[in-house]
Amino acid sequence: MDESLLNLLDMSQREYELYRSLLTLGPASIRDIASHAGINRGTTYETLKQMQAKGVVSYLPKGKRRFFAAEEPERLLQKAEERRLMLNGLIGKLKSDIIPELYHLKPEFSAGNVRFYEGDDGIEFVLKDILNTVSRQADKSYAVFSSKAIRHHLYRPFPNFTKQRVQRQIQVRVIAIGEGGEDAQYSERKWIPTQGEVDASYIAIYPPKVAMISLAAANYPVAVVMDSEEIAMAQQIIFNTLWRLL
């Protein structure tokens, strides 16, 4: 079974192999279970006790010996449902109480509101942050200043960015500095003509954040993300004013 599924079920790979052996054997002794699973008896016994505590294994005494048996496979689905209900409750608690309380601990603005990222992994994180932040808002839109020189490098670590943006029905308005740029759904574009070379730059305005991406030496991408409602709104006003004039 996939490891991620096992984690959700709170089972290890060893526990899953023992569970499969128990289903095959039916009620069986520790010796027979260990032999069938290819695991030593001491480890088998300790693991079976853990599985019993999790409710996927039970035992019945036969004389002086214990015979272990697997609960029905339906029990795994029940465990998944229990985990889902628990997570739903936790998510609700996070939204209603914990997250608002933690935000109250933050100052209005601090050095922690400015984050630096670099390399392809860093840029991918910033691009995903744009999609995730905007998708949670009622107005699913953001604005971008983008120069021609950066476009070839920007989506290199995240080639499906535009596809995911369209799937989430996120609208973007782009003021392109220099010619070019691709057409896509849920996007509008206007241009500022330029003469000669323009430095690589990309500014995304997605209140309460502003992300600024540029290229360092050898086309190495770097980014700064500011989490500030005031700065984001000021940038939004500048963008909207220029958008109307173009």
Rank of each mutant, 00 (worst) to 15 (best):
56 V>K: 06
72 E>R: 04
131 L>T: 13
127 L>D: 00
217 A>L: 08
69 A>V: 12
181 G>Q: 06
26 G>S: 10
183 D>A: 05
241 T>F: 15
25 L>F: 05
176 A>R: 00
138 A>W: 01
181 G>E: 06
9 L>F: 03
130 I>L: 13
170 I>S: 01
177 I>S: 03
4 S>T: 12
99 I>R: 00
121 D>F: 12
101 E>Q: 15
160 N>S: 06
87 L>D: 08
151 R>L: 05
64 K>Y: 12
40 N>Y: 04
13 Q>D: 11
54 K>H: 10
235 Q>K: 07
26 G>V: 03
131 L>C: 13
181 G>M: 05
95 K>N: 10
65 R>A: 02
214 S>P: 02
14 R>P: 01
15 E>M: 08
233 M>V: 04
82 E>C: 04
85 L>T: 03
98 I>F: 14
97 D>E: 12
122 G>K: 03
108 E>T: 09
223 A>V: 07
209 K>F: 10
13 Q>P: 15
161 F>P: 05
73 P>Y: 01
140 K>H: 09
37 A>G: 06
130 I>K: 08
59 Y>I: 07
188 E>Y: 04
6 L>H: 07
203 I>A: 02
121 D>M: 14
140 K>I: 08
96 S>C: 02
190 K>E: 00
19 Y>M: 04
20 R>T: 10
205 I>M: 01
172 V>M: 11
39 I>V: 13
119 G>S: 04
244 R>N: 15
84 R>I: 14
222 V>W: 12
29 S>L: 14
210 V>W: 03
130 I>T: 04
163 K>I: 07
82 E>Q: 13
239 F>V: 08
216 A>H: 11
91 I>Y: 02
128 K>Y: 02
227 D>F: 12
215 L>T: 09
49 K>M: 04
130 I>C: 08
101 E>M: 15
111 A>W: 09
60 L>A: 14
136 R>Y: 08
198 V>D: 06
53 A>I: 01
41 R>D: 02
123 I>N: 07
109 F>A: 06
134 V>K: 03
169 Q>V: 05
242 L>F: 11
40 N>C: 01
19 Y>R: 14
230 E>T: 02
26 G>H: 13
51 M>D: 00
61 P>R: 10
177 I>H: 07
8 L>P: 00
62 K>H: 12
32 D>L: 14
216 A>W: 14
